[in-house]
C-alpha cells in the first residue's frame, strides 16, 4: 500500500466518484479557483470544470438547500462547508429538509447528498470556530454521521457516502488533513461501509473508544501505558450514526473496562450514547464504571495555554485508564 495524506485521500475519493458518475458535483466556498480553503479540492476544478466544481458566495443555507433540491431530483451533490462551524446557518436545511424529506414523502424522494468539511478545534481559532459538530447531527434520525480518523477510512468512507442514497454528514478533522497513512494502491477500489467500527489497536487490559483528533492522542497514550504494562485495545467507531457497538462490546467483555475519549462537549452526544449502550450491552462484564475523557464543558478560549487544557490530553487519557484499572 502507498501512503497518502488525509486531504489527498479525500480528494481521491471525490475525484474517483466524479469520474465514475456525472451526477456527482462539488459545491462550496472557495472549492474551485482557490483550490479549497484547506486544499482538499485542489486540482478538481481543472479536471472537471466549472459545471461540476462550483464556487459559491457565502450563503450556506442557500447552497445547502440548492444541494438538497438537486439531490431530490437525481443529482448527487457534495456540499463543502468551509468548516462545520458554518453549517449552523444551514442547520435548518439539514435538519428540517434533508433529514425529513424521505419519510415525509412516504419514501418517494431520496436525498443522496454529502455534507463535508473540517470539523473540530484547530489551533487557537476561538469559540465560534472550534465546534465539534457531531452531537448536533448524531441526534437526528434521517442522517448518517461519519467521522473518519485515518486517510484510509477517509477515502473509503467518503466513497461510500457519495454512493449512499441518504444524507451523510461527513466530519473531517481540521487538524488531520496533513496526517499520513496507508491507503490502497491506485486501481484498488475500497468502499468502507457506513456503520462499521474498526479495531485500531489490540490489547487485553482496557478498551478505549475514540475517533477524530483524539484518536491520535489515545494511540500515543496507549504506547505510554504499554510501557507501564497496561495494554489498551483501541476501537474507532468511524461512523457515529448508525453506531456499531459490536467490536466495543466484544472488547469490553475481554478487558472488563472502558474509557471513551472524544473532543466534543461531555453533555450528551455520541460519547454519552456509547457509554449508555455499553453499560447495557456489557453490564455483567464491567469491573469499573465507564469513564469519559472529553473536551471541557466551556466555549473554546483563544489562549493556547487554556485551549491545551480544554482538549483531551494524553495525560488525561492515561489517568482515566489507570482509574478504571485501579492502578496507580
Amino acid at each position: 500500500m502507498r501512503e497518502l495524506r488525509y486531504r489527498e485521500a479525500l480528494r481521491e475519493a471525490m475525484l474517483e466518484e466524479m469520474e465514475r458518475d456525472d451526477r456527482v458535483f462539488l459545491m462550496g466556498e472557495e472549492v474551485g479557483h482557490y483550490q479549497g480553503a484547506y486544499k482538499v479540492s485542489e486540482g478538481l476544478l481543472d479536471k472537471f470544470g466549472e459545471r461540476r466544481v462550483i464556487d459559491t458566495p457565502i450563503a450556506e443555507a442557500g447552497f445547502a438547500g440548492v444541494g438538497i433540491g438537486a439531490a431530490m431530483v437525481g443529482l448527487r451533490p457534495i456540499i463543502e462547508f468551509m468548516t462545520w462551524n458554518f453549517s449552523f446557518v444551514a442547520f435548518d436545511q439539514i435538519i428540517s429538509n434533508a433529514a425529513k424529506v424521505h419519510q415525509m414523502s412516504a419514501g418517494e424522494i431520496d436525498v443522496p447528498i454529502v455534507f463535508r468539511g473540517p470539523n473540530g478545534a484547530a489551533k487557537q481559532v476561538g469559540s465560534q470556530h472550534s465546534h465539534s459538530a457531531a452531537p448536533f447531527y448524531t441526534h437526528i434520525p434521517g442522517l448518517y454521521v461519519v467521522q473518519p480518523s485515518t486517510p484510509r477510512d477517509a477515502k473509503g468512507l467518503l466513497k461510500s457516502a457519495i454512493r449512499s442514497n441518504n444524507p451523510v454528514v461527513f466530519l473531517e478533522g481540521e487538524t488531520l488533513y496533513g496526517v499520513q497513512g496507508e491507503v490502497p494502491d491506485e486501481g484498488v477500489e475500497e468502499l468502507i461501509p457506513i456503520g462499521e467500527s474498526r479495531l485500531a489497536r489490540p490489547g487485553a487490559d482496557c478498551t478505549i473508544v475514540t475517533w477524530g483528533r483524539p484518536y491520535y492522542t489515545v494511540l500515543a497514550a496507549a504506547e505510554r501505558l504499554a510501557a507501564e504494562g497496561i495494554e489498551c485495545e483501541v476501537i474507532d467507531p468511524r461512523t457515529l450514526r448508525p453506531l456499531d457497538t459490536t467490536l466495543m462490546v466484544q472488547s469490553v467483555k475481554k478487558t472488563n473496562r472502558c474509557v471513551v475519549v472524544h473532543e466534543h462537549w461531555p453533555y450528551g452526544g455520541p460519547g454519552a450514547e456509547i457509554v449508555d449502550r455499553l453499560q447495557r450491552e456489557a453490564f455483567d462484564y464491567l469491573d469499573a464504571p465507564l469513564e469519559r475523557v472529553t473536551g471541557l464543558d466551556v466555549p473554546m478560549p483563544y489562549a493556547l495555554n487554556l485551549e491545551d487544557k480544554v482538549l483531551p490530553t494524553e495525560d488525561r487519557v492515561i489517568d482515566a485508564v489507570k482509574r478504571v484499572s485501579y492502578s496507580k
Binding site: 481559532v125 476561538g126 469559540s127 465560534q128 470556530h129 478560549p301 483563544y302 489562549a303 487554556l306
Partner: peptide, 10 residues
C-alpha cells in the same frame, strides 16, 4: 481586551 479568551477575531 478580552482577557485572552477572544483573540484577534473577538
Amino acid at each position: 481586551c478580552s482577557r485572552g479568551l477572544g483573540g484577534s477575531m473577538h
